[in-house]
Nucleic acid binder design. Structure first.
Length: 586
RNA sequence: GCCCCGAUAGCUCAGCUGGAUAGAGCGUCCCCCUCCUAAGGGGAAGGCCAGAGGUUCGAAUCCUCUUCGGGGCGCCA
């Protein structure tokens, strides 16, 4: 409907252009908005206010000219000029009511569209280092990324969901070494555990499976492990130097093959765990992209070569630097260290180069807001490579802080006692977690109230919406118990009897749903859908309290049942897009 | 020091990308089940949209400055 009114206005404007009432060169941005107040009709357009000045007319006068030039349309029952010069449109009753039939026909597909026209979008999200279980901070990125992906798919984009696995680099060596040291401890070797190692119990679990598989074949005496290793921090040394020495020692004593086995035992166990965890959270990927393969396929070298050929690489202090400052970054960045190893950034350049070469029309990265400083250099690299950096959008997600009993829940990765995503799911359930995470704009800091997420009351928006859905299902069960049935055709024929304010409010909400989905998707703002569903649930509950659905008059009864069934579809479809279940009983 | 995000009711947040009288929920106070789930509904009170300038027909929304929060500024990943 919105689009149709826009078309009408566009035609009216061009009519005025041909009569020279409005300068022909104007290309106005026509905005049609839903009104807040029903006395202003259903839709409003502010075009006359915007064109008044360039056309040299007063807004109300111009509005009248536009209204006069408006083509006839039987879906519009009335057009009014109001206030300073708004053009208000009143939609005909038939059009208002037709949404019910549309929804009942389309069912699960109501709200889907094809604005994306099959354009390929790659969406990378979570991509947490596989050095331990996901924690609650990752949960927000997971819920947000998955929902944006589903929304984009709903409006017709071809979405590719990807997890970038950081399976190379020093952090992974620290993990492998941590696993091996725990393994040695399980063997009874009295080695100290480094302060900078991964402290979590899951490392011990991995060590135990390693022990079960390899018996004591990876064991070395404590002297061989620790002799000549610089002191750890608590002993007055440097924890970084200490752990690096231990990594080297592990590689030397184990040899390449055994070291890789320890490394992969850690990596594979954790990746499998992350995959299960996300799956239980309703989040699945099309691809798990390995950082290691970038090097194996020569992509890192290829990327650096291309930058070199384009003259954006120079040598300083034994390292190779990328001139990212030429593209607005605040300083140049190292891509190859003086020890010959490429940096994480070099991998990321190669990864993003590869993303664009895979033919996506658009590439979206969902990152934690703490990585925001990283955006300019990645964009700089794409520009330097001659790729279209505008195809890349980075969505930054702010932190979520958990509250329990009004107190901030302390998190500490260091001690290994952080709150994991799994613990969160166990505590509040996947539905509440998914909903709460997307209830806020992503750039908004979030207070996640665990008690509220758990509470089964109207305070909790998840239950409130789910309850509206369950209530409708319950009404349908009651109908059967009373020996009645729902006749959709009779309901359809009597829709015009739905004239109560509650019914009109609900009809309005249902008609708005496709616009909400479109807008949530295109602006990457799932919270708009979350808020819409809450409002729609409210309309339903209000209606439920004010009116009886199962009434004696079969005409009104079936018309109302059509309306609430349509509402049920919208709630169901919307919740599904948010990754939340729509239970039939509660 | 530089950069990013935020500041709206007592609390947690919306505000449809510049429009009509700034909205929800919670909390507080009053009210509604012999009736389809009270996991619900109705009503009341509650606001200098952090502050100051600017842009224009019109600003919570856009620009500048200030104040206060959160985060980031490695040859770590």
């Amino acid at each position: 409907m919105k689009h149709e009114i826009k078309t009408l206005i566009t035609q009216a404007v061009s009519t005025l252009k041909t009569s020279n009432t409005v300068p022909a060169e104007l290309e106005p941005n026509i905005q049609i908005t839903r009104t807040k107040d029903s006395s202003h009709g259903d839709f409003a357009c502010n075009i006359a206010l915007m064109l008044a000045k360039p056309a040299g007319k007063n807004p109300r006068e111009l509005a009248q000219l536009l209204v006069d030039a408006l083509p006839a349309n039987d879906q519009i029952s009335k057009v009014e000029i109001a206030g300073p010069g708004f053009i208000n449109f009143f939609v005909s009753q038939d059009t208002t009511l037709s949404v019910v039939e549309t929804i009942l026909n389309l069912g699960d597909t109501y709200g889907l569209s094809n604005i994306g026209a099959g354009r390929k979008v790659q969406l990378e999200f979570v991509s947490a280092n596989p050095t331990g279980p996901l924690h609650v901070g990752h949960g927000r990125g997971a819920a947000y990324g998955a929902t944006v992906a589903d929304l984009l798919e709903a409006v017709g984009f071809d979405v590719h969901r990807e997890y970038y696995v950081n399976d190379a680099g020093r952090q992974m060596d620290i993990l492998a070494t941590s696993v091996w040291l725990r393994y040695l401890q399980q063997c009874g070797v009295d080695v100290p555990f480094p302060s900078n190692g991964y402290q979590g119990d899951y490392v011990i679990d991995i060590a135990n499976t390693l022990l079960a598989k390899h018996d004591r074949n990876l064991e070395h005496p404590v002297a061989a492990v620790m002799d000549g290793i610089p002191a750890d921090e608590p002993a007055g040394g440097d924890k970084e130097i200490h752990i690096d020495a231990l990594i080297q020692r592990a590689k030397t004593l184990l040899g390449d093959d055994s070291y890789l086995q320890v490394f992969d035992a850690g990596l594979n166990t954790i990746i499998a765990d992350i995959r299960d965890d996300l799956k239980a959270f309703g989040v699945e990927y099309d691809e798990w992209y390995s950082e290691r393969t970038l090097a194996h396929r020569g992509l890192i070298k290829q990327a650096i070569d291309r930058l070199q050929k384009a003259n954006y690489i120079y040598e300083k202090g034994g390292a190779l630097w990328f001139k990212s400052t030429e593209f607005g970054d605040e300083k140049d960045r190292v891509v190859v260290r003086d020890n010959g190893q490429t940096t994480y950034f070099a991998s990321d350049i190669a990864y993003h180069m590869d993303k664009l070469e895979r033919g996506f029309d658009r590439v979206i990265d969902v990152w934690g807001a703490d990585h925001h400083g990283y955006v300019p250099r990645v964009k700089a690299a794409l520009q330097a490579l001659g790729d279209d950096a505008d195809k890349l959008d980075v969505l930054l997600v702010q932190f979520a802080v958990l509250y329990r009993g009004g107190e901030k829940v302390q998190m500490s990765t260091r001690s290994g006692s952080f709150v994991t995503l799994r613990e969160l799911r166990d505590e509040v359930g996947a539905d509440a977690a998914r909903f709460f995470y997307v209830m806020r704009k992503c750039e908004q800091h979030m207070d996640f109230d665990l008690d509220l997420a758990k509470s089964q009351s109207s305070d909790n928006p998840v239950y409130y919406i789910q309850y509206a859905h369950a209530r409708i299902c319950s009404v349908m069960r009651q109908l059967v118990e009373k020996g009645l049935s729902h006749d959709v055709a009779i309901g359809q024929a009597n829709l015009s009897k739905l004239t109560e304010p509650h019914e009109l409010g609900l009809l309005n909400a249902l008609a708005k749903y496709p616009e909400i989905v479109e807008k949530s998707a295109l602006s990457e703002e799932p919270h708009q859908l979350a808020h819409f569903l809450r409002d729609t649930a409210n309309e339903l509950h209000t209606y439920y309290n004010a009116h009886q659905f199962i009434v004696d008059d079969a005409d009104i009864r079936n018309a109302r049942l059509n309306l609430i069934q349509a509402t049920r579809h919208v709630l169901h479809n919307g919740l599904k897009l948010l990754g939340v279940s729509a239970p039939e009983t509660m």
